[in-house]
Computed example of a mutant assay.
Amino acid sequence: MFGLSPTFIDREDAGRQLAEAMQAAMPPDPILMALPRGGVPVAFEVAQRLGLPLDLLIVRKIGAPGHPEYGIGAVVDGREPHVIVDEDAARRFHVPPGYLAAEREHQLAEIERRHRMYFGEDEPSEHDHTGRDIILVDDGIANGVSIRAGIHALKDMGVASIRIAVPVAPRLLLESLQEEVDDIVCLSAPERMEAVSLHYGDFRETTDQDVVRLLKEAHRLSRTLSH
């Protein structure tokens, strides 16, 4: 389901709008998985409004040499860390020998740091959602490297189904992603898209502390609902 082009006040506003759009397109008992950090405030609003459990899928972008903002690959947290590389982009940026291997190790170390910060001493089994219906949430998709890495990792995990819910993403990318997932909810699908941030009035950085706070609040609300 692709929509027109709203602009979002901030990530919370985007999450509220997304929750409204998702009500008609949900499996019976899904788990929301947010891509930190920016996807967490969006997913938290969805979790609150739809009464869904919230978990994280930690994905780290591998930036192009000299252009760290442009993703040429990504690494995903998990029992077996998953790496995906956009071969076309890697060729375009003339990636030197050893660069991807070094970046992979660097991002794995950052994933480990974030995992400890966000989850503490949780067992990996607590984040194993084999056989479950997953809704993957981010604050927007630019070139799709991170979300594709997440999709591959979830398929390797053996989840039952994967849906994507995002406020904004380029139309052509959404059309290609449709072949990889069960459903997509996207509120704004422009033909051309320069940056996710341009679709938000307030796109201030989401911090690690924000992620920890929202995750704790989501778990508290989830426990309240289950009693």
Rank of each mutant, 00 (worst) to 15 (best):
M1Q: 04
R11F: 00
D13M: 14
A14I: 12
A25Y: 14
M26W: 02
M26T: 15
P28L: 09
P30F: 11
P30D: 08
P30A: 12
V42P: 05
F44K: 08
L52D: 09
P53M: 05
L54I: 07
D55T: 13
R60N: 04
R60D: 00
G63R: 01
G63V: 08
P65A: 14
H67V: 09
G78P: 06
G78H: 02
E80R: 09
E80W: 09
I84L: 15
E87W: 05
R91Y: 04
R92D: 09
G98W: 14
E103V: 04
E103I: 14
A109E: 10
I111R: 00
E112A: 15
H115I: 09
M117N: 04
E123D: 11
P124C: 14
S125F: 14
E126Q: 14
H127M: 05
H129I: 03
G131Q: 06
I135Y: 01
G140A: 00
G144Y: 03
G144S: 04
S146W: 02
I147C: 02
R148A: 06
I151P: 04
H152W: 10
A153C: 02
L154Y: 07
K155Y: 08
G158P: 04
V159I: 06
V159Q: 01
S161A: 04
S161K: 01
I162K: 09
A165W: 03
L173G: 06
E179N: 06
E180T: 04
D183T: 04
V185F: 01
S188G: 13
G201M: 03
D208L: 10
D210N: 14
E217F: 03
A218Q: 11
R223I: 07
S226W: 08
